[in-house]
Amino acid sequence: MVKTSKRMARAREEIQGQAYPLQAALPLVQKLSSAKFDETVEISLRLGVDPRHADQMVRGTVVLPHGLGKSKKVCVIASGEKQREAEQAGAEHVGGEELVGRIQGGWLDFEALVATPDMMKFLGRLGRILGPKGLMPNPKTGTVTFDVGSAVKEIKAGKVEFRVDKTAIIHTPLGKVSFDGDKLLENARTLIESVMKAKPSAAKGKYLRSVFVCSSMGPGIAVELTSLDK
């Protein structure tokens, strides 16, 4: 039996197991955060889709208006002048085919990977390494593009990728506990809106089943679905 810590027990007591409107839930998350670091606020959305069917897959990207509160390390694989463009945009690692070799050798010191379409042929063989970590570039999520400059900037500005997992739940970060309440709320609304837009046509029944918010080490707080329509 997993023991609940006193910290967690106190926090749970405060929630009293009930659902809150989004605008009340987020401040509560901030209030209950008691870890010794700036925790990330996360949101989980359970959807009414069957992710085993490819046509019911929900996946997309969204640029959060207030970012995530931290900058991602970006690696860009491009050729020629595109490399310079990426460097100017602030990418940490920029290179061509030689980076592919390094990644194959086990180097993975980045959190996002952008590639130009002409370099994709070298990346094809990295699927087994990048795939499990969700780093494989994909044109649909804007990580395979010739416009590397803006792609890097977007990622740096707080672009998040979301996708349903096997249990039909999307988990993504919204920002940090130290954010202003309004900023978090705006980020959350933007994300939910974008997920709603990504509703596959094959999805049947109620699409958004339940929503929870929490901080990295805090308890989950249920969100009233009716509060999202306002």
Binding site: P117, M120, G124, N138, K140
Partner: peptide
């Protein structure tokens, strides 16, 4: 991924390829 490198990114062909790639990868 090889085809992506070969066709013009502005063409319809590229769009078709990326669409297919996205589906398969997912």
């Amino acid at each position: 991924t090889h085809q992506m490198a070969e066709v013009d990114p502005r063409s319809d062909e590229y769009g078709r390829i990326t669409e297919r790639y996205h589906r398969i990868e997912t």
